[in-house]
Design a protein around this nucleic acid. Sequence first.
DNA 1: TCCGTACAATTTGGGTGCGAACGACATCTG
DNA 2: CAGATGTCGTTCGCACCCAAATTGTACGGA
Lengths: 190, 190
Amino acid sequence: MPGQRSITQAEKLAEAKLGGIPVRHEQMAVVANIYRAASAVRQHLENSVLRGADLTWTAFVVLWVVWVWGESETRHVAEEAGISKGTLTGVSRTLEKRGLIKRAGHPTDGRLVLLSLTEEGEELMRRVFPAFNEEEAFVTARLDDEDCRTVADGLRRVVLQVEEHGEERRLTLLDGAPPAPRRSGRRAQG
Amino acid sequence: MPGQRSITQAEKLAEAKLGGIPVRHEQMAVVANIYRAASAVRQHLENSVLRGADLTWTAFVVLWVVWVWGESETRHVAEEAGISKGTLTGVSRTLEKRGLIKRAGHPTDGRLVLLSLTEEGEELMRRVFPAFNEEEAFVTARLDDEDCRTVADGLRRVVLQVEEHGEERRLTLLDGAPPAPRRSGRRAQG
DNA sequence: TCCGTACAATTTGGGTGCGAACGACATCTG
DNA sequence: CAGATGTCGTTCGCACCCAAATTGTACGGA
């Protein structure tokens, strides 16, 4: 199996490259495998259930959030779906065009936009989610329920660590230095 | 902490939505948290060490692969980096423009292209990787070495399950039906 | 009423991200 | 050595994706 072997091998090669500087192997393996697993799972779900419903991963996540939470403000949906508000604007417009989502202004605060599923959207989710959950079970088939709880808990700790101390950590690292603007993306005006 | 609570709550809401159809909670939690963790880790690393070096996540992964494995054929790099060949073409061209990567034809097989780091690229990685690994340790700070091994092993099983049985599973699910082309992407010619 | 601050979604710009289509090349087959 | 077949990297079209800039709304005080 190339997956595991290549990771181990890559770690050794990396250490050789660094010539004596110690590498935190276990931590590196966690991060590397989080990303590998995320890609593999996403790929599988897109190819098995989502493509048949003509949904991308992101579109499904957005639908799922709105479905489960009911009518919600866009900023909360973006937060929960793990995408930026700017991205959500585009995605929700696409879903609106397909008749799966409704967009409505907030009754009292004109700045807010509320998202909710149309009846067609509800129907789609009632049909697609069980299949989606079935594939979630497939990809985790080599873990029993106890293993799943352990892994999920470990991942939750990673998320919490970043959520609670990430900002502070970044400030410490940069140590007052300017936040280094992204090279890509919109440029500052003159 | 909103993270964990909202997931649990979302699961209950989802079950209520489904009205009696059982949901595989543990498996759902694993998939949801894999994706959350992947986003959180990527975000943190981009904002802490990569932006300072003017690298995106993907660009760094590509550089890392080439750095560790040495001069490599593009298809292997794409495979190892977890991106498609088409994406790699764009990323490697960007890196070439910045003088971090060299592209060379294969001596005997004219179809192949070999990627390798320039001296500037090597220098960058010697500087950036230790900082990167330091942040990998930061995001996993709430896990001890043993926990890390457990989580990494669990994730490896997910990856292996998909790699070894994903294709077969998809065929079973679609059961001979046409593979349902992606809605986005290049259209077939007349 | 006018102003300024605050905060909301949206637009914009650069860079991925995928899979289908494509053209160049290698290799098999006769 | 010509054609068929397969494999490579590249091109293409569309959808994301983020963060900065922008636009629009709310609401406080002067």
